[in-house]
Amino acid sequence: MAYIDTSSMTEYVAEQPATSPAFRSVRRLMRRKLAVVCLIIILALYLIGIFAPWIAPYGYAEQNLDASFQGPSWEHPFGTDRNGRDILSRCIFAMQTTVAITLATVATGGIMLPLTLGMLAGYRRGWTDSIIMRTGEILSALPGLPMLILITVTLRPRFVGWVENLEDKIGTNWFTDTGFADFFLIFFVLSLFGWVGGARLIRTQVFTLRGADYVTAAESFGASTPRILFRHLMPGVMPLIVVGLSAALGAIALAEIGLTFIGVGIQPPHPSFGALIADGSPRSVFENHPQLLLIPGGVVCLLILSFNLLGDALNDVLTSRNR
């Protein structure tokens, strides 16, 4: 009877644990120092935004007219603005705005809409495909920013009136007090235009996946369309979603900042980086108090740069052919 030494085999198995593709991708990403740094920066900024009310030393609308345009000091590390409001606190609350807008928009316009519509178009083809893709073509042919401005301007009064009406019925002021109505409008408009690019990519990917044996097998079992889409096709398109996500988060953050800068986004006194940059960018202010523009501008720059670099790394890790 031959003696089989299994100890070396268990050792080998222990060295090579069964890993999922997702886990392997994460490990490959963690080996890139720059990507990890970017990830940490993004997480830190988002945590600051989420816990803004507990972190910020002052309220975002707390004025002290005796202390306007102060330089950096121990009481106000980033100085104060025209109304003596603490810039550090306003930056922290502006981050809260960015977190809310980007996460809400990405959850709908960045993931759900492109995923569902793209997979549906790619899987069902025929007239479903035509309707979805033609709608996308029309939306992407529109001049984006003028449209965003127009829609927010025209919809806001109706929408705010509707929300106030709703509040009267329920007996609360929460939606208008927290600026939730503004957030919702901005994120709705951004989602409306945000899904097209992602849906197009996913549709192309599903075209190649739908012929796979496991899809045919699922069909032969009589699996429903939603089950095939979300159970069998979704894992194959997840890398595309993750890569697109990083770019989408940055673009959405910038869009909100732009809309707020020209006065149609988040309404004062609720802070946003757009409002902070608008306060700091007039020539007379910038010449004498450059920190009012450079600090919020620097934070935005850091965030966008981190998203860009992380997106690059994710792209290499998840979609490159030469692994």
Binding site: S281, L293, V300, C301, L309
Partner: peptide, 20 residues
Amino acid sequence: GTFLFFRSIPVLVLVPILVL
């Protein structure tokens, strides 16, 4: 990397700096 950095500067911040 250098050009990614430049792309990350929002136009809203870049223009006032250029003007200054």
